[in-house]
Design a protein around this nucleic acid. Structure first.
Lengths: 225, 225
DNA sequence: CATGATCTTTACGCAATCCTTATGCCGGGG
DNA sequence: CCCCGGCATAAGGATTGCGTAAAGATCATG
């Protein structure tokens, strides 16, 4: 697990610096934007794990930023505002902000709220990890203990489907429908073969699997931590 | 979709009434508790969709309430406190509270935060609990005192059928028809065997069962609290 | 067209689960 | 006191479901 990246959106350089130092000291990576437009670009380019957004921006209204982001992502957003007006809070929260802190704020409170937001907003990750295994979705590659693992396309799809549902049981039927298409909902033997091949390639001890566990009569489950 | 049920935990009757009316007017159902102990019981009994918790309670510290609840549920919790102390906020949020509102608060802000909380916890998890036992329906998983319990498919189905009808007697015939199908309505011996195996696995003292009680000549009953 | 990789299909050994029956316990009634 | 019905538990054989290997089919590639 790498350090969470926090995007700070504020047009006052002093506040940028202040927040930047405080967050860095608490173990976060940071990046910055000074305008609403810049914020949207930074989100797209850097894919931060959370955003701290000052409502008082020069160009776009901060609320427009929230609205735009919410249309396509559930990035945790903490709103910062000079005005301790109730109306501000209500509107920001209703637009989809996750939390609200009024200036002047205590850095401790901000950090606590940030932790609370990060704790319960696990966005769909691009990189899945489980023990020694790393699955790079955009790169379409899998490595174990740093060594690349060669998977056929079907094996890869199957692995991704499992790893995206950690701890949950996926039924034979569910998996077959998603990977092999609507015509093969009953072809359980395919599944068995491919699960076997996957285990050979990714389990440290294929005969005592602890990543892909089988649920007799039901399906398979990807083990969470 | 029925109205969300909000549990209000406060020891001051005026505040209870005030919040009750405000929430009712906004389309929520409400229930109340005046103590920390009462809050825990109310959560178990009424299964509310969210909780508004005053930290200044007569018995348990409010923080202990949060901690206890977080051990087994992710019920949205909004903390209410007379002290606008930063430390209070930090601790409450870190323990797992979802949000924090300082008294005196505007009812509009409280409602907005409540909506924000409910919006992102829309999944009433299908998790049944009874004493030390936790049955995770979507996860197809059972744990006792945190330790996983291995159940065969039939055992699991049987347990779920019982636990879904707490306090009610299910007749031999009813159970056999549902679990074994229409052809086995009279095969009471099957049932006895599987009830026995279930008790071995989930009862703390299998020879003096207090989860699955026998109703001689009738059937079995899952004991409620 | 030849080659190698991937996918489909089948078969078989093995373990988990289920079915079935037998035995023993307990409480009530003769 | 003994008998009997309803229950719990143990134990065996039958069945189902799983994992693996291996052979044929299909596809992309050069």
């Amino acid at each position: 697990m790498t350090k969470p990246l926090i995007l700070i959106v504020d047009d006052e350089p002093q506040i940028q610096r202040f927040l930047g130092h405080a967050l860095a000291a608490s173990g976060y990576d940071t990046c910055f934007a000074a305008t609403g437009q810049g914020a949207l670009e930074a989100v797209a380019a850097q894919k931060p794990d959370a955003m701290i957004l000052d409502l008082g921006l020069p160009d776009l209204n901060g609320k427009a930023v929230i609205e735009t982001l919410r249309a396509k992502s559930n990035l945790p957003i903490i709103v910062l505002s000079a005005h301790d007006q109730e109306m501000e809070k209500i509107m920001a929260l209703d637009l989809g902000a996750n939390d609200f802190v009024a200036k002047p704020f205590g850095i401790g409170e901000l950090l606590a709220r940030l932790r609370a937001c990060l704790r319960k907003a696990p966005q769909p990750e691009d990189i899945l990890r489980q023990g020694p295994l790393v699955i790079d979705l955009p790169g379409h590659t899998v490595t174990r203990d740093g060594a690349p693992v060669h998977l056929t396309p079907t094996e890869f799809d199957l692995l991704v489907m499992l790893a995206r549902n950690p701890g949950r049981v996926l039924s034979h039927r569910q998996i077959l429908l998603q990977i092999w298409g609507p015509a093969h909902g009953e072809d359980v033997p395919y599944l068995r073969v491919f699960i076997g091949q996957l285990r050979q390639k990714i389990e440290s001890n294929p005969s005592a699997p602890d990543l892909i566990r089988t649920e007799p009569g039901i399906g398979y489950r990807w083990m969470a931590d």
